[in-house]
């Protein structure tokens, strides 16, 4: 294996870990209005976040179980769909996560831009 493919592989693995951490915030950010699973996949994809349905659907269930999301089946349409929406707890947690996230990006920017400085 040459150096290039090795670094490619490493970067892929590390990126996957980074993305995993941001996925939850991405999902919460789009659920101020009710969405069903697949509409969320499309909305996120439009905004540049690629997420498999196979990852998103279980994640939505987990977030619901943690009390961050509320869900409801809509059976009026031809195809029954489960709609998810931020709960009160979810809103609060999301707002605070955003603050934390901004803090973190500030720190990271400081680190990255300041790298190499004495």
């Amino acid at each position: 294996m040459d150096e290039k493919t090795k670094s490619e592989e490493l970067i892929q693995g590390l990126m996957q870990e980074l993305r995993r951490g941001t996925l939850m915030i991405s999902v919460l950010s789009q659920l101020k209005k009710p969405q069903y699973g697949y509409s969320l996949v499309t909305v996120l994809a439009d905004r540049g976040v690629d997420i498999d349905a196979g990852t998103l659907y279980p994640l939505l269930r987990r977030l619901e179980k943690q009390g961050l999301l509320a869900s409801q089946w809509d059976t009026d349409e031809a195809r029954p769909r489960k709609y998810y929406l931020l709960s009160e707890l979810g809103k609060d947690v999301y707002d605070r996560l955003c603050t934390e996230w901004k803090k973190m990006t500030n720190i990271m920017e400081g680190l990255i831009d300041g790298s190499g400085e004495e």
């Binding site: 699973g37 697949y38 349905a53 659907y57 029954p80 489960k82």
Partner: peptide, 17 residues
């Protein structure tokens, strides 16, 4: 039961798209 329903919906949505 719930996941079964959900998956059917998902697959239909994906097919439709």
């Amino acid at each position: 039961a719930d996941i079964e329903r959900e998956l059917h919906g998902l697959i239909e949505d994906m097919r439709e798209e």
